[in-house]
Design a protein around this nucleic acid. Sequence first.
DNA 1: GCTATTATAGATACATAAAGTCCTTAATGG
DNA 2: CCATTAAGGACTTTATGTATCTATAATAGC
Lengths: 133, 133
Amino acid sequence: MKYSQATDYALHAMLYLVASAPDKPVGVQQLAEKLGVSPTYLSKLMTKLVKAGLIVSTPGANGGYRLRKAQDEISFLHVIQAIEGTASLLECSLDHGDECLIQQVVLDAERQMEQLLASKKLVDVARRLPATD
Amino acid sequence: MKYSQATDYALHAMLYLVASAPDKPVGVQQLAEKLGVSPTYLSKLMTKLVKAGLIVSTPGANGGYRLRKAQDEISFLHVIQAIEGTASLLECSLDHGDECLIQQVVLDAERQMEQLLASKKLVDVARRLPATD
DNA sequence: GCTATTATAGATACATAAAGTCCTTAATGG
DNA sequence: CCATTAAGGACTTTATGTATCTATAATAGC
Ligand code: SF4
Ligand code: SF4
């Protein structure tokens, strides 16, 4: 089990936005070049981030993406869930009700992880980032 | 992102073994019937659990699987990692070294989750399990 | 209004992994 | 020796992720 590569792209794209000037939108063209991924594909991921409310997009000349919230309000969890969704790791087809302890255990564990991911903000790592080539 | 269904099968199979008499091996035929999955497929999963050291198998007449350790030593994490492996959720192809804070954050989060999964033993939920039909 | 620019969205193709089956081999108990 | 049961390889099918192409819509600047 692994995060999709899309999550990796999204994280790097967001970190790039965090490191950029907050007023100037960054185009998908420019982002894709930095990340080494196709612009059309990255575009779809960016749209997910838009719908998740993390960034805003402006079409047209000099358009692109910019952060919606303040840097220090955006956590790893926000980005990851925007791409991966919020479904539980363990979802069984049979539904034995809320009493199912198996799902409860996994859910508790997920909460633990999410708690840490929510506490880590993008800006925390943006400064000391290795060269993003 | 989700655990594979194989993990679900493995958890239920292990819980069944925990609930069974510890001296009598349980055959894959019987297990598969309980879980509603094909015996040959389940067999492959059980083999993974064997290789992970969670259970032992005895071929031949009256053979099958039985727990290797004591009930209360087997955690959710053991079973999950036996199936899903131990790779990190975020593995990027580029390797910017140990200093990569992105991977570090995700790794920390995983550790949090694993810590809880390791503390939860199968026997904790085996007793109060809904009917496994 | 016209044009260049840029995001959005649908359809489609491709690659990879998961899920499941079939058949053969090996080991054990009686 | 024989019935039984796990292990393993090869294979098919299905699902998901990855990626591309094309068309559409919205915006800025002239
Ligand atoms: S016990 Fe829980 S995990 Fe297992 S089949 Fe029932 S609802 Fe699903
Ligand atoms: S910064 Fe970390 S996650 Fe990003 S490409 Fe480098 S090693 Fe990978």
